[in-house]
Structures are given as structure tokens and as C-alpha cells.
Design a protein around this nucleic acid. Structure first.
Length: 566
RNA sequence: UGUCCCAUGGUGUAAAGGUAGCACAAGAGAUUUUGGUUCUCUCGGUUCAGGUUCGAAUCCUGGUGGGACAACCA
């Protein structure tokens, strides 16, 4: 036999633009070969899939380049932040499979240092206490195309600024009465450079520092310096902070401290959902969903409850890549990632969501057989289980048609189908409800020679159906989730509407299903493939007496797709 | 009458001046005790106009289009 030449395997994946920058820095020995990143959330909300992209990016880079990754909470606004969020964020990062080891930090750890930095600026004549109100500051800032006006306070002496700033800290002034501003350039074409506010007075209790402070640094005055303090080599953030970079560079230069390199990437968007914290909060507060972890939410806790695995989300983050152009990822890709993962990992069981009764007329009345079925055809090590079979079973109502089209491979009068792991049956007649004309019973005969494993069972039949035995079936509540919005881009809003007008009224349907008895062993967060239907996850509301399943995602269904086209 | 960023199949992402590739989606077929999975194949792309070059998705100039920036939010 001739040996085919195996083309050289391209194991090395091409680099994304951030990795290119890092490798270039590494080649130039920029930080003595050190790579140190960080994930810097504000604890004012729950993390979503967009954050997951950032988490995977930052921690992934740390791992890839033998570096480190910090978790730092940017908690400079006590009014909006809370330990509830701190806890959920840590849980989510850990669940995604990442570890910050002993490097858990808070911007509030640096308040004293940041205060010192402000003093340096004041001493250099690069910062001043401004007496204007928020409105006045806003009015004098100008517009992107028109320069702003300088504040009267701009000419204050160094001593007076120093004195006033200390008295701000001492609590002598009410909220909003004064701020500390950087003295840069009110005519700068970059709005960020027009004497930005760097400290404001806020008599508010901070979730970590309590009442120690009544002045708090603005994010812009804390973020870059925090990265500097932590000796972050590559500060990776989203695109909207690109225009802030000159300001961060200015602070670093004027204060005279270590300069990280900031790199901006495009944030994630996914079709049929929204990603802004404000909108997600609204959905929760106004009751459109049942909390932050509602399985329809794009939050990490929502995805977790829905039944997504950490690996599937990591793989998703990997597949979407990272670049600077705006992007909208098809939600299909997310669904592909979870199917791919669960296909290999989850055991199969049979569940009938919309049952219709099938009676096997020639099957012994009281006989019950324990049939064997494979748990996972993708993984033989998962073994087999027993499934009870009897004279009366349920099948899916959709799996029967009285007058079927040619391509219908399922049960119909006179036709044969295989019952998964059981027998081949033939439909002999149907009984209808005289009032509703709905099919009440389907009468079939079974072929005893076709039990799975028997030689005759190899007979070709076009369809295989899942089923459950009536007597042994277990009922369970099933929550069928669908996309939260009906519109691909819910933020593309028509006149007089809001994104909430595109909420999908059918995003949750609750039904009762009949499931094979082995399901009794199911525990919260267990995931199954309901044969021929989809992947399902035991919800936290589930109890042994009242099982509750979430539909993670349906199986691909080329039959119903073909039907829809018609 | 601003500054900055971006532009490759439907979507996302590669190609560092030399064969435009991969994934998802879509379509066709094969296999299948899941109309799943798997496998094979197909469809389909460099925003435009100039320039540099033997050669441009890539470099230059200009246009067009999209985005970010005017919280005492982050």
C-alpha cells in the first residue's frame, strides 16, 4: 500500500492581535519577559457572557505566557457597589475554571496611595480644587467639536488647593460642593483631557472601607494607577476606553510611576439578547425575568442555571476570537458549543414531552420487561441502564401522523417503526376522542422477534422513536426556554418603541413530561440528553418529589426545519 | 464643523508583499436503533477610487461606511 504523505500538522494557531503585541514585547524583553494581566470588574452587577470573554482572555493570556492574572474589583463608587456582587463575581470566575490564587485585590486597597498621587499632582500644579457644580462643569466642558471654558478655580494657588483637598477629605464640605480636577487642557480635542474630575465628595459608606472616606477617586484616576501598582504588563480593556488612554498615560507620567500597556478590544455582542448591565438590571427589577440567574439571561449565573458548562463557554470565548472591529456573534455558535460538549458528556434518557398513548394489542397484559439501553453512544464507558417496557406506553404526539407525507419516517397507520432499545411495532388502528377528534389511543402490534439484540431486530425500518412505559413513568416539570428577544438586535429600535417591545412572549413555556424511571436519580445541575429532543438540566427548584428540568438547548432538528420551509 | 478607532463570505476570525483559509450558519449526500452524532461535498468574501510594486486583503493617498468620546458612572 502506498503511504500517503501526511501534511505537516499545523498545531500552532494563529495569534490574535493581543498575543502578537505580547509576543513582540516578549521579544523586546519589555518587562523582563513578564506577562501579568488582570480582570477588573466593578462589583455593581452580575457578570455576563461578555465578561466571560474578558475573563477567558485575561486568564488565558496569563496561562499561555506563564504569567499571572489578578482579580481586582474596581470599587471606587460606594453608591452602586455591594458585597453581593463581589461574591457572585468570584463564584462566576471560579466556576469558569480560573484561579487568581493569592492575588485578589480591590481598588479600595489603594485609596491611601491614590490620595498621595493626587497630592503629587496638586504639588506639581497639575490638579486643582474646583468649586463649580456638576451642572456648571458640564456646561463649561464644551462639545466634541467646540472647546470648553476654563474654571475660575483653575488659578488657585498650590497651597490653597492642598488645604482645600485635605479639608475635602476631612469632611468639611457637603457632597457635590467641590471636586478635585486634573489641570490639563480645556481645549483638547479629546474630551477626556478637558480637566477631568478626579476626586468627588461622597458621604457614603463603602462596602469595604466603611466610613473611612468621604472623598472617592473617579474610575479614571484609579484604574490606570491600580494597574501600575499591581505591575500589570498588559492592561486589556474594551474599546470605549481607547480615548481614555491618553489620560491614563498623562497620570502615570505626571505621577512618575510604572506604565502598563493598555490594549483595547471589541466587546462581545450576541444576537437575540442584550448585554448592557443597565438593561439586564431593568429586566430583573421589572420582573421580565425571574432574577439574575434566570436561565434566559446572558449572565454567567443564568447560563450556569440553564445548563451550560464552563468548558462550553471557554470554548465559545476561544472560537469567537478577539479583534477591534464591532461584532455580533450568532447565538447559534453558543448553542453549537454547548451541544458539542453535552453530546460527549451527557447520558441519554427517554422523555416524552407531549404524550399520546400507544397500546400493543398483542403484548401480554401484565408483562413488564426490563430492557437495556446505552447511556451514551459517544462514550461506551458510561455503560447501560434498564428501562421498563410494557403493553401501554407513551410516544410523542408529533411522532404519529394519520395521513403522513412521503418523507415522514415515523408512525402512521400500517407503518412500522422501531422503539428505541425495544421492539419494532406496526400501527393497526387509532381511537379518537369523539368530541375533540383528537387521537386518544394508537393501537399497534409488536414483533416479538425484533427485540434489540435479536437477529431480526436488524431489519431496516425508517424511524426510531423514544417512548416511556405508562405505569413506570415519572412526571417532571419541564421549562422550555427560548431566546429572550424576538429581534436579532433588540437595540435596533423603531420609533416610539423600546428594546422591551421585542421581548419574546414565548421565551418560557412550562409543561409536564413523562420520563423513564431512571431519572429518579437525577440531582440538581445534572445534565441529560432527552433522546431525540434536546439537552436538559435539573434546575435548583427540583426536589425528588417534584423534578424540574430546564431545556438547555434542543437537538438539531432537520425534520422540523424541512417542514418549516414548506 | 473636532479627536480617536475600525472595515475580509450571511456571522465571526486567519493570511506579517507571493495559492484568500478555518469555524458557525445554509444546501446536498453517506452512515446511523436519536431526522442527533460522525463523514464527504457544495454555496459564498477582501468597502470604493487611485498610487507604489514583477506581484497588494496586506504598504501609501483620498473617498465611503460603521463605532467611541460631551456622569461628580465604570
Amino acid at each position: 500500500m502506498e503511504e500517503k504523505k501526511i501534511p505537516e500538522e499545523k498545531t500552532e494557531r494563529s495569534l490574535n492581535f493581543i498575543e502578537e503585541i505580547i509576543e513582540e514585547d516578549l521579544r523586546n524583553n519589555v518587562n523582563e519577559g513578564r506577562v501579568h494581566t488582570r480582570f477588573p470588574p466593578e462589583p455593581n452587577g452580575y457578570l455576563h457572557i461578555g465578561h466571560a470573554k474578558s475573563i477567558c482572555l485575561n486568564f488565558g493570556l496569563g496561562k499561555k505566557y506563564n504569567g499571572k492574572t489578578n482579580l481586582r474589583f474596581d470599587d471606587t463608587n460606594p453608591v452602586k457597589e455591594d458585597v453581593e456582587y463581589v461574591d457572585s463575581i468570584m463564584e462566576d470566575v471560579r466556576w469558569l475554571g480560573f484561579d487568581w490564587e493569592d492575588r485578589l485585590f480591590y481598588a479600595s486597597d489603594y485609596f491611601e496611595q491614590l490620595y498621595e498621587y493626587a497630592i503629587i499632582l496638586i504639588r506639581k500644579g497639575k490638579a486643582y480644587v474646583c468649586d463649580m457644580s456638576a451642572e456648571e462643569i458640564s456646561e463649561t466642558r464644551g462639545t466634541p467639536s467646540r472647546p470648553g471654558k476654563e474654571s475660575q478655580s483653575r488659578t488657585r494657588s498650590e497651597e490653597e488647593n492642598f488645604d482645600l483637598f485635605n479639608r475635602m477629605r476631612a469632611g468639611e464640605f457637603p457632597d457635590g460642593s467641590r471636586v478635585l480636577r486634573a489641570k490639563i487642557d480645556m481645549a483638547s480635542p479629546n474630551m477626556q483631557m478637558r480637566d477631568p474630575v478626579i476626586y468627588r465628595i461622597l458621604h457614603a459608606t463603602h462596602h469595604r472601607t466603611g466610613d473611612k472616606w468621604c472623598i472617592y477617586p473617579m474610575y479614571d484616576f484609579a484604574h490606570g494607577q491600580s494597574d501600575s501598582i499591581e505591575r500589570i504588563t498588559h492592561s486589556i480593556c474594551t474599546l470605549e476606553f481607547e480615548v481614555h488612554r491618553p489620560l491614563y498615560d498623562w497620570f502615570i507620567r505626571e505621577i512618575g510611576i510604572y506604565a502598563p500597556r493598555q490594549i483595547e478590544f471589541a466587546r462581545l455582542n450576541v444576537t437575540y439578547t442584550v448585554m448592557s448591565k443597565r438593561k439586564l438590571l431593568e429586566l430583573v427589577q421589572e420582573g421580565y425575568v425571574n432574577g439574575w440567574d434566570d436561565p434566559r439571561m446572558p449572565t454567567i449565573c443564568g447560563l450556569r442555571r440553564r445548563g451550560f458548562t464552563p468548558g462550553s463557554i471557554r470554548n465559545f470565548a476561544d472560537t469567537i476570537g478577539v479583534a477591534k472591529r464591532d461584532n455580533v456573534i450568532d447565538v447559534n455558535l453558543l448553542e453549537f458549543c454547548i451541544r458539542e460538549d453535552l453530546n460527549k458528556k451527557s447520558n441519554r434518557i427517554m422523555a416524552v414531552l407531549n404524550p399520546v398513548k400507544v397500546i400493543l394489542d398483542n403484548y401480554p397484559d401484565d408483562q413488564i420487561e426490563e430492557l437495556e439501553s446505552v447511556n451514551n453512544p459517544e462514550d461506551e464507558s458510561k455503560g447501560k441502564r434498564k428501562v421498563p417496557f410494557s403493553k401501554t406506553i407513551f410516544i410523542e404526539r408529533d411522532d404519529f401522523m394519520e395521513d403522513p407525507p412521503n418523507k415522514f419516517f415515523r408512525l402512521a397507520p400500517g407503518r412500522e417503526v422501531r422503539l428505541k432499545a425495544a421492539y419494532i411495532i406496526r400501527c393497526e388502528s387509532v381511537v379518537k376522542d369523539p368530541k375533540t377528534d383528537e387521537i386518544a389511543e394508537i393501537h399497534c402490534t409488536y414483533d416479538p422477534q425484533t427485540k434489540s439484540g435479536m437477529p431480526d431486530s436488524n431489519r431496516k425500518v425508517k424511524g426510531t422513536l423514544h417512548w416511556v412505559s405508562e405505569k413506570q413513568a415519572v412526571t417532571a416539570e419541564i421549562r422550555l426556554y427560548d431566546r429572550l428577544f424576538t429581534k436579532e438586535n433588540p437595540e435596533d429600535i423603531e420609533e416610539g418603541k423600546t428594546y422591551k417591545d421585542y421581548l419574546n412572549p414565548d421565551s418560557l413555556k412550562v409543561i409536564t413530561a413523562m420520563i423513564e424511571p431512571s431519572v429518579k436519580n437525577a440531582r440538581i445541575s445534572d445534565k441529560y440528553q432527552f433522546e431525540r429532543i434536546g439537552y436538559f438540566c435539573v434546575d435548583k427548584d427540583s426536589t425528588p418529589q417534584n423534578l424540574v428540568f430546564n431545556r438547555v438547548v434542543p437537538l438539531k432538528d432537520s425534520w422540523s426545519k424541512a417542514e418549516k420551509v414548506k
